Computed example of a mutant assay.
Amino acid sequence: MQGIKGILFDKDGTLVDFQKTWFAIGDLMALKAADGDRERANALLELAGYDFANHRFKADSVFAAGTNAEIVALWYPDASEEERQAITAGFNTMTAQAGAAASVPLPGSKDAIAALHGSGFRLGVATNDSTSGAEQTLLALGIAQMFDAAYGYDAVANPKPAPDAIHAFADLTGLKPSEIAMVGDNRHDLEMARAGGAGLVVAVLSGTGTRETLAPMADVILNSVADLPGFLGTA
């Protein structure tokens, strides 16, 4: 841990309360895809990973861990590639604006970011949301100035679980991947960290992942980002 100089964070479920922020937005997306048909929209939500019985998105489901492009491919299987690109662009705009406006920070996350930034860590976000969505959310939370960069799925050639965002952040900051910690709540986050050679892989239980799904890939499991400064000895 002494060699860690930079930290990449997943966004939803790590910095932002996933369930409180995203169900309403996901419901709007599903209703749009279903042309307003409530029953069909519910079926699409279930297909994307929403568990109506427990009122939450399932760990590692398409909606919890995937991109808007993957959601569109799932919901519009008969659409042409051109049609899917147009629908994805519309969803990107919708989720960037609505996600930022509705974003609910996880308890203690903003204080933790301030403490880590104040201790000299280079900070970034790697998300399967769009880059615009990530940047607008950081601005809405009032913490954008503490981050060097935000990488959405559309900012890299290959989104999570590919290691592209780790490499991009290393290139930007001049750090080695082994000097970067990755913090996330889904297996995609941890798989990216492993693939990219991150020096520390931190799982948090504040999102859709569970201890059982995260433990095989994590170096450490914390309850939330609020515990990270203490773990890194900067609190």
Score class of each variant (00 low, 15 high):
Phe121Cys: 10
Ala115Ser: 14
Gly118His: 08
Lys110Arg: 15
Ala96Ser: 15
Arg122Gly: 04
Leu139Val: 12
Ala140Val: 05
Thr131Asn: 01
Gly118Leu: 13
Ala126Ile: 01
Pro107Ile: 10
Gly142Ala: 04
Thr137Ile: 10
Asp111Ser: 14
Ile143Gln: 01
Phe91Met: 12
Asn128Gly: 12
Thr131Ile: 00
Ala102Leu: 09
Ala101Gly: 03
Val125Gly: 11
Gly142Thr: 11
Thr131Ala: 08
Ala126Thr: 14
Pro105Ala: 06
Ile143Met: 12
His117Ser: 14
Leu106Val: 08
His117Tyr: 14
Thr127Val: 07
Thr88Ser: 03
Ser103Tyr: 03
Ala112Thr: 10
Thr131Val: 04
Glu135Asn: 11
Leu116Phe: 10
Gly99Trp: 05
Gln85Asn: 12
Ser119Leu: 07
Asp111Gln: 15
Gly142Trp: 03
Ile143Asn: 07
Thr127Cys: 05
Ile143Ala: 09
Asn92Cys: 09
Arg84Thr: 08
Leu116Gln: 06
Ala100Asn: 10
Pro105Cys: 06
Val125Asp: 00
Gly90Phe: 00
Ala96Glu: 02
Gly118Met: 11
Ala100Phe: 08
Ser132Met: 14
Asp129Ser: 06
Ala89Trp: 04
Met94Arg: 09
Ile113Tyr: 04
Ala96Leu: 02
Ile143Thr: 13
Ile113Met: 08
Ser130Pro: 02
Ser130Phe: 01
Gly124Asn: 14
Thr93His: 08
Asp129Lys: 00
Ala86Gly: 00
Thr88Phe: 03
Glu83Gly: 00
Thr137His: 03
Phe121His: 12
Ile113Phe: 09
Gly118Ile: 14
Thr131Tyr: 01
Thr88Ile: 08
Ala89Ser: 09
Ile113Asp: 04
Pro105Gln: 08
Asn92Ser: 11
Gln85Thr: 04
Thr88Gly: 02
Leu123Ile: 11
Ser130Ile: 02
Asp129Thr: 02
Ser103Thr: 02
Ile113Ala: 06
Ala102Trp: 05
Arg84Lys: 15
Gly133Val: 03
Arg84Trp: 05
Gly108Ala: 09
Val125Phe: 00
Gly120Asn: 09
Leu116Asp: 04
Asn128Gln: 11
Ala115His: 08
Asn128Tyr: 09
Thr88Arg: 11
Ala98Asp: 04
Ala134Glu: 02
Pro107Met: 06
Gly142Ile: 04
Gly99Ile: 05
Arg122His: 15
Leu106Asp: 07
Ala102Gln: 12
Asp111Gly: 11
Leu123Met: 13
Leu116Val: 08
Gly142Asn: 05
Ala96Ile: 02
Ala114Thr: 13
Ala126His: 14
Gly118Glu: 04
Leu139Phe: 00
Ser109Met: 09
Asp111Phe: 05
Phe91Cys: 01
Gly120Cys: 13
Gly108Arg: 10
Thr127Phe: 05
Ala89Phe: 05
Ala98His: 10
Leu141Gln: 06
Gln97Asp: 13
Leu106Gln: 09
Met94Glu: 11
Ala86Arg: 15
Thr95Phe: 13
Leu141Ser: 11
Leu116Lys: 06
Val104Thr: 14
Ala140Ser: 15
Ile113Arg: 07
Ser119Cys: 12
Ala140Gln: 15
Gly99Pro: 10
Lys110Cys: 11
Ile143Ser: 06
Arg122Met: 12
Leu139Asn: 10
Pro105Tyr: 06
Thr93Cys: 00
Ile87Met: 04
Ser109Gln: 11
Thr137Leu: 05
Ala114Phe: 06
Lys110Thr: 14
Thr137Gln: 01
Glu135Asp: 07
Pro107Val: 09
Ala134Arg: 00
Ser103Asn: 03
